[in-house]
Structures are given as structure tokens and as C-alpha cells.
Amino acid sequence: MSQSSTIDTMTPTRLPGQVRAWASSNSALVAMLLLFAFFGLTSQTFLLPNNIFNIFRQMSVVAVLGIGMTLVILIGGIDLSVGSSLFMAAGISALLLRDGSTAPVAILVGLVAATLVGLLNGLLVEGAGISPVIATLGTLIGARGLALVLMDNAQIRVTDPFFDTIAVTRTPGIEALNIPGIPLIAIIVFVLYIITALLMRHTIYGRMVYAIGGNQTAARLCGIPVKRIKILTYTLCGFYAGIAGMLIAASTGVISPNLGSGSEFYTIAAVVLGGTRLTGGIGRVEKTIIGAFILFMTLNWMTIRRIPTEWQQAATGLLVLAAILIDRLAQRERAS
């Protein structure tokens, strides 16, 4: 095949090499900036600081799910059960709060429940050798079912003042410039990203994850405890889903039987938009938040610009396909 000649015609020659290299390894960031500029030029409302902060808060659940999902995808796996783990955590916490528990206890138990779902995923995949898609599809159905049994299929209202505080608290704003404060939920998300990004860069765990994702056999031969690291990664993914569950409980205030269903789709989309390779080994946690921001600012802009709701779904799908396509092209360029 004359693959190299195809690539030559596609390579822009006017850009200096360094800029080109930077743009190709940061395609998610470039795409985000271009889209942001376009949205800002076509809608003044879009650029209002309060609107940007709204987007931060709206993407928070998918962004937090995306942290764990990125890790799982980096080790060459996938976790379809995040929406159900999130629901289980939120449902159990809401139940405990309704029955008189204090917020810290309710949050702790909810987080433990979601973490256990993650652990179960890890054991099913690494212990029982079930493929990640099948195993986490099973827990997707099972965890939601179990939570529904516990909740007696009813809607549960979350009125705890602590949860309400999480939802309403903002940093002080700048009144003179009419800039409101940043929502606490957004700050929580950014802090989680910073911690995880540092974890991936500066700990042995982070390096092992990339080693396993890059070449599992080689990693094992180097003495890396592949199974344990993979189980730990699925468990972490469950834990992050638990945190996302707390955030969704705070922001929606009512736990309905379908809460969080389908969020795995948006989460995987955010990870892909962030440039993490679905085959594992290549990607960065901090880029997933860029993917989540691209997704949610697009949805926000479409609402503000009054794009019909049917078109919004189609556009979201196209966006993800475009991301995969761009990623493939960038990959080929690097390969050459």
C-alpha cells in the first residue's frame, strides 16, 4: 500500500514542525479551542462567565466517571457498569439519609458500595477471565437491579442540607465585573483530576498502568503484578463512580430508577474525545476533562442556539465519530 504517499499529501507543510507536532499530540485541546472560539463568536450568551460555570457543573458527573474510565481503558479494559455503580451509590446514600443517617455515614457507605462493584468487575475480568464488556455488562444490569430492590423501586428525595450545600456553594465572585463565583462541584472535579494526574505521573502505580496497557506480556515478564494492578484499577473506577453518584445526588436532589443510565456512553465518548486510545496504553487522564468539556459545551451551545432536540442527539454522535477519525489520522501521521 502507498500509505506514506497518502499521508504526505495530507500533511500541512506551512506550519513549522514544532507547532505541528504540538498540535498533533494535543489534538483534543486544539479542537476544544477551535470549537470554543466558534461557539463564542456565534453566541454572546455562551461566553457569559455564569454559562461557562454551568457547563463545568453539568459535565461534572461524566468528567468524574471519565477519570476511572480512562484508567480502565489505559489497561486495555472497559467498564460499562459506571452508570449503575453511580446509581447504587446515590440510591444507598439517599436511603440512609431518608432513614436518619448523618451525611458522612451515608456518603461513606455509598462510596463503599460503588467501590465493591468495581472490585467485583476486577475479579470477574481478572479472576474469572470474563471479557470486560461481558463482565461489566453483567454488573451494569445487576448493580442497578440490586439498588432498585433496596429502594423498593421508588423515587427518593435528597433533602440533606450537606448535599444541598455541595450543590449551591460557590467561591466569592467579582461583583464589579458581574462574574459569579465558581461552583464547588466544579472545584471538586478539578481537584480530583489534579490528584489523579499526579498519581499517574509520579507513582509506580501510574507507570505500571502504562506498562500493562502498552504490552501486557512484557509487563508481566518485568515482574509487574499485572492481575493485581488491573483489579485495583477496576476498583478505583468503581470508587470514582461512587463520587459521581454523590455529585448527581446533590445536583438533582431526587434519585429516580433510571438515574445515570446511559452515562457510560457519554463517559466513553469523553475519554475518546480526550484522545485516549481504546486499545489501551496511550492517553492521559487530564485530557478526558477536555473531552468532557467539548461534549458539554456543545450540548450547551445547541440549547442556547435553539437547535432542535433531535438534531442534538445526531450531532453528539457525529462529534464522537469525528474524534475517533481525527485520532486515527493523527496516529497514522505519528506512525510515519
Binding site: 454551568n54 453539568q58 458527573v61 448527581i248 445536583s251 438533582t252 431526587v254 429516580s256 433510571n258 438515574l259 445515570g260 443510565s261 446511559g262 452515562s263 458539554f296 450540548l299 450547551n300
Partner: peptide, 10 residues
């Protein structure tokens, strides 16, 4: 979406 509460919030 599928009657999703978080979408109603957004």
C-alpha cells in the same frame, strides 16, 4: 434523553 434527571437539571 431517557427521562434523565441530570439532563433536566442541565
Amino acid at each position: 434523553g431517557n427521562w434523565e434527571a441530570d439532563k433536566a437539571v442541565a
